[in-house]
Design a protein around this nucleic acid. Structure first.
Lengths: 329, 329
DNA sequence: GTGAAAGCGCTAACAT
DNA sequence: ATGTTAGCGCTTTCAC
């Protein structure tokens, strides 16, 4: 591969001039420009990012931490991130942390090693202390999940309100026995959604029953199945279920079906996230829609501003309750 | 951030010695090693990959081209890719090409720009000429989908045989009216799976009926719904459907249900890929399982060998027919 | 408008 | 075992 020196030689100019043509910034006479461009074409020259990046002390790569690439919730966010990053001439390095601290560490080190210019973290299981420490020196944004005790700018939705609305929807339909399939409450969003759930019940003087709140380790289908199985074994079973993710809700749907019960006639179900699959279940799933694509775009914009050294404020985006067959057959 | 020079100064040695400690290759006396390590710790030094990469003329980044991150088929492959790459100290840059030539171009340029050391392409819609040209100069591997006319090493399964087996399974159950929901046959895998479909029919003297072969543009749920809708409008409707992806099959399932028909009593359905969701449908989906994780691992290993300059042979992996409720209620 | 030269941080060949 | 030094490919200041 040709380098900038060879281009300069062929064009009969200095490397500085070639660089000027490449970067279009400072002025080059039309004549020399043409000469240089001809030399570039002739030699099939492509500038090396390795040299440029070292010189500019940047990698133009953004790190994106997600707990699991298999979770469809993240795919739309990533689309937003990728589009926006590409537009600003950044590339993204997608890091499936598997919520594994070791892996997380490997990736987070990249920013220290100058291999990444900034980080968007979407992993609820991220080591918060580590992230906050890093954020003092490096540009970091949290997307969707964040640390309420920390000082890292984030973009997210109002989880408490979204859960409140979902549960209120069930109450308005006449339900009084409403179960909650939640994730582990070490996660902020899980705590917030539980608060919304309880606020709705309290508002209508419906007592909160411990046995109707089930906490899962992960958000997989299987967890939804297991949770629903437990709930169906209680002496009094709920007539409605609010699950904090569509994957959990779909697992619940399946288990309800398996027991010969009908949704929503016997039990109504609400999910969260509006993953593409939530429209393919039978019945289709009532769910809370987050502006995932937009969330990704905003996160990148915030991060780029942060990289530029600007001050960045956290942003709360809107959500929407999508009412489908699983609550209103 | 401290650089290697500062560490050398603080430790009272030369930069070469610091580099030796860092890279553990050549010998350093225990005493100096301790001194250097102390200096590194004290200064919180982290080696810059920008400098190292320029010097070594490598980025240690592998490009992975996928048509769409939303397709769950790819997520398991990516897991395999990521694990294997990380083990060999490579990072992966995931490129959602959206089957868009412009985007593809942006990404493929990265390898010319030295920003990537090699490419794994999984995009069936990739510009084959472009890829073959690039492959002459740069390390490239194709995964899952490949170009039978080209010379790029690939890892894949025997699509013809897999389709043959799936259709034969339906025939053995007594079906004689078997539809095929295929993707656009500009894709090699689509042509191969159609061949397998036809071979099975021919073997049992079942005529191939044009109106029972439906080609879709994409592999989305919606395409499956539309395809099934068409098939159900025919005067003679099939009693079984083989769809070349689970997403299509799940769409078909939904449309069959919508029409008040039962799977598999009225119509049996077979999918392809064994995505995690195929186990959550009602009924669960009979499907062809590809060793996706392994495919990812193998692809990376092949690519790394190629980067090292070794000769690399294409590899065909095994598949498996997973029989579930959608064919045997 | 253009060129000479310094230097980003690192590794490795060569010298000691 | 350790130090000296060149150089990977590029951008940018400073001259002219």
């Amino acid at each position: 591969m040709a380098n900038i020196q060879e281009v300069a030689d062929k064009a009969g100019v200095s490397v500085a001039t070639v660089s000027r043509v490449l970067n279009k910034k400072s002025s080059v006479s039309p004549k020399t420009r043409v000469k240089v461009e001809a030399a570039i074409k002739e030699l099939n020259y492509e500038p090396s990012m390795l040299g440029r990046n070292l010189r500019n002390s940047e990698s133009r790569i953004l790190l994106v931490l997600i707990p699991s690439i298999s979770n469809p919730f993240y795919t739309e966010i990533i689309n937003g991130i990728e589009d926006t990053a590409l537009n600003s001439n950044y590339h993204i390095l997608l890091c499936d942390t598997d919520s594994n601290p070791l892996r997380e560490n490997i990736y987070l080190n990249m920013i220290k090693n100058k291999l990444a210019d900034g980080v968007i973290s979407m992993d609820p299981a991220v080591n918060k202390k580590r992230l906050n420490d890093l954020a003092k020196k490096y540009p970091i944004i949290q997307c969707s999940e964040y640390d309420d005790a920390g000082h890292i700018p984030h973009v997210t939705i109002n989880n408490e309100l979204a859960a409140y609305r979902a549960v209120k929807h069930l109450i308005m339909l006449g339900h009084k026995s409403i179960a909650l399939i939640n994730c582990d409450e070490k996660f902020l969003y899980a705590r917030q959604r539980r608060q919304g759930y309880e606020r709705a019940l309290n508002e209508f003087d419906i007592p909160v029953r411990k046995e109707w709140i089930y906490n899962t380790d992960e958000l997989l289908f299987e967890n939804g199945i297991r949770a629903m199985r437990k709930l169906l074994q209680l002496e009094t079973t709920p007539t409605a279920v609010f699950a904090v993710s569509d994957t959990l809700a779909i697992g619940a749907l399946k288990e309800i079906n398996e027991n010969g019960l009908k949704v929503p006639e016997h039990i109504a179900v609400v999910g969260f996230d509006k993953i593409s699959f939530s429209n393919m279940t039978n019945p289709t799933l009532t769910t809370v829609s987050q502006p995932m694509y937009q969330m990704g775009c905003v996160a990148v914009q915030m991060l780029i501003n942060k990289i530029k050294g600007e001050d960045v404020e956290s942003i709360i985006l809107d959500h929407e309750l999508i009412i489908r067959e699983s609550t209103m057959g």
